[in-house]
Design a protein around this nucleic acid. Structure first.
Lengths: 138, 138
DNA sequence: ACGGAATAGTTGACACGTCATCCAAGTTCG
DNA sequence: CGAACTTGGATGACGTGTCAACTATTCCGT
């Protein structure tokens, strides 16, 4: 399901909006906050991405003009990621049809109980994985 | 859930068995059949992979000695993929702990009803995506 | 204040996925 | 038979993900 659904959604976004799902995720996280300006590590944590992956991806997005980098005066190491006008335009163009695709491909065939069940399952699995993955006895 | 679970499982397999999830999938499909000899397109269809992706991956696996290619006499274009002894050894070494990881990370937190619900959901979503994706009005 | 650790982020090498393209072997039909 | 078309599969270019190594800054203990 995962494979098939993901492929369908990313194909749709790619052909209609020239954005990958990953681009979209980054842009979503940037628009979610008020001043559209975020430290790289904050972003990485919010997205559950490795810093390296994010850094690579940001370079590519910067090259395409979707985001920009700004120096951080309070911490000389850091960098702010900012959403450019082009980036904002891109996500605003992409979002509606993406939402629609998710509705059509996914929620259209689910009942409310299905959604509740999925939520509960996902919560438990994530908790389980993150528990055994980070801390313990293993 | 998908992201987190997939990452955990592939990390586990990589560190314990030097195989990626994709390697594993290929090997599973090859051991599933009796004479461990399959046409590339059959394999691609069974795995729901693009032919190109499979071809690239098989090249990498061949370089590592996990599989081999054999000419097909009945169809001069074709190639058979065969499982090498190394490949068989690799999957037999990897399988038990992978199964165990899936059980621990996933099934351990699911009830029977959860599993039934998930199965039903996945069936519906896949049917839906494949219906709207291949044939119709769009 | 100074030297070692931690932190922020980048980079390079390499594995992987997709797309478009290509080629050779088969198929169809005049 | 032979030209157009299809099919099996490989390849190259390019975008993406991971790991390990690296640089530069900041933090912290003495």
């Amino acid at each position: 399901m995962n494979t098939v659904l993901g492929a369908a959604l990313s194909r749709q976004m790619q052909t209609e909006s020239m954005l990958s799902m990953q681009d979209f995720e980054v842009l979503v996280h940037l628009t979610d906050i008020d001043d559209a300006r975020l430290r790289v590590s904050e972003l990485a944590k919010a997205m559950r991405w490795e810093k390296s992956r994010l850094s690579h991806h940001l370079s590519r997005m910067e090259k395409r003009g979707l985001i920009g980098r700004e120096e951080c005066s309070s911490d000389g190491r850091g960098a702010f990621i900012v959403l450019t006008p082009e980036g904002r335009a891109a996500i605003e163009a992409a979002a509606p049809s993406h939402v629609d695709a998710v509705r059509r491909h996914f929620f259209a065939v689910l009942t409310d109980d299905d959604v509740k069940a999925l939520n509960s399952i996902a919560d438990r699995v994530i908790a389980r994985v993150e528990a055994t993955d980070t801390c313990p006895s293993e």
